[in-house]
Design a protein around this nucleic acid. Sequence first.
DNA 1: CGTAAAGTTGATATTATTCAACGGAAGTGG
DNA 2: CCACTTCCGTTGAATAATATCAACTTTACG
Lengths: 248, 248
Amino acid sequence: MSHDDAHPVSLQCGDCPIRHRAVCARCESSELDELEGAKYYRSFEAGQTVIWSGDKMDFVASVVSGIATLTQTLEDGRTQMVGLLLPSDFVGRPGRDRAAYNVTATTDILMCCFRRKPFEEMMERTPHIAQRLLQMTLDELDAAREWMLLLGRKTAREKIASLLSIVARRDASIRHRKMRGRLSFDLPLTREAMADYLGLTLETVSRQMSALKRDGVIELEGKRHVTVPDMDRLLIEAGDDSDGGLIA
Amino acid sequence: MSHDDAHPVSLQCGDCPIRHRAVCARCESSELDELEGAKYYRSFEAGQTVIWSGDKMDFVASVVSGIATLTQTLEDGRTQMVGLLLPSDFVGRPGRDRAAYNVTATTDILMCCFRRKPFEEMMERTPHIAQRLLQMTLDELDAAREWMLLLGRKTAREKIASLLSIVARRDASIRHRKMRGRLSFDLPLTREAMADYLGLTLETVSRQMSALKRDGVIELEGKRHVTVPDMDRLLIEAGDDSDGGLIA
DNA sequence: CGTAAAGTTGATATTATTCAACGGAAGTGG
DNA sequence: CCACTTCCGTTGAATAATATCAACTTTACG
């Protein structure tokens, strides 16, 4: 079905780049040892489908590196992205054996996997895992609700500005930079993926990107590299609270 | 601030109508005894605000009866409903001391409350509560993502049909009826609340309700009582998968 | 090069919003 | 009991926003 696992990977949990943020974040060393023994890695190339909605899903996983998307579709092909999976994010649901969404690798990705049944048993025995998963799920629920506001009530221009703010924020957080003044980052999404995220057509995305560029809110080098001369200006364009914040 | 608690209520957990669905669903009788001792009831009248986004929130609660809404707003007043709280649904987030959303009573409601700190401590000790809360949160996340598809990609007519299907489904489930053939139910929302839920204006909601009525998809008695002569027809109008399903 | 994929832009069509007028039901006070 | 008001809902006409269809450009890549 796919050429994942072409390059088997081995990584000690102690050295794992997502050790402190993933579902295992709260585990103690003895708990980590058990996970260490059960885990296995899978990798997918950019563009590959990890799983189709409705398919049997006998594993759960954490994204170690790279970006994947969760999408839902209507019968006639209209599609809506419902989540963006970044390193440390969790895929799959304990207690459910079929995927509820399509999962697609946007860049090359590496995932740390566990067979579902053993993971579920481990969760029963290990409150630290369940606690962390609850916390992560609550965060995702907040993010989903924030996105509902965007989808239901923001204009196309505000939607684009919001997406750019979020990508900028994530990038600043990874590189330990402040969210002020001049910032630049790569946009890991095609115009079509942006459209699917924002509930727009790709033409509208393109037009609004051009408009933001024309108005000096952003600068573009090539298609994917964005520079924001004034972050506050972008946040205002996004229409969020003046504190620039997601959840209050 | 409000005239809640005008009629103090007392209810044994064993007799509680949401006993088997709420956050306490998995608790054993000894655990229930502990909850019994810590709980208190609050009631709100239709239209009252339970809590404002950003306010200090020192309790968590389950909705026992009635309906409440979770909404988010933009500075200029645009508002989006991000959740509908039905009996057994949980309000508040362990580990967070400020409300992230506005909570408003749509009908008169009764809530079973716990002070937040004691509840958090109880959760640490009682995996049954944490497990159930995780399950409920995952369900809410699925519902939120289903709603994202609606907000981002459905037409106004499909949005209305989807909302009616969901209310019909809930009503059928409560009254133990099948989702087939002729069905009728009360709509617990004003046109404005429907609009806030669906990311539309109230005029568009009104027009589409009229259109569905004109086309024979629904019948209306008064403004709030809806009869669906053919449920399958409504599901087709909603644009969901032919199996009529939410999550696959 | 030549081709495919991604992106841009223009013209036009469609959809939903906005602004405005109006109708009916429920509640209030004389 | 009747005017009066308010809230909720409906409908129409004009407008604005976004989608659709289509042509064309740029970039990446064999």
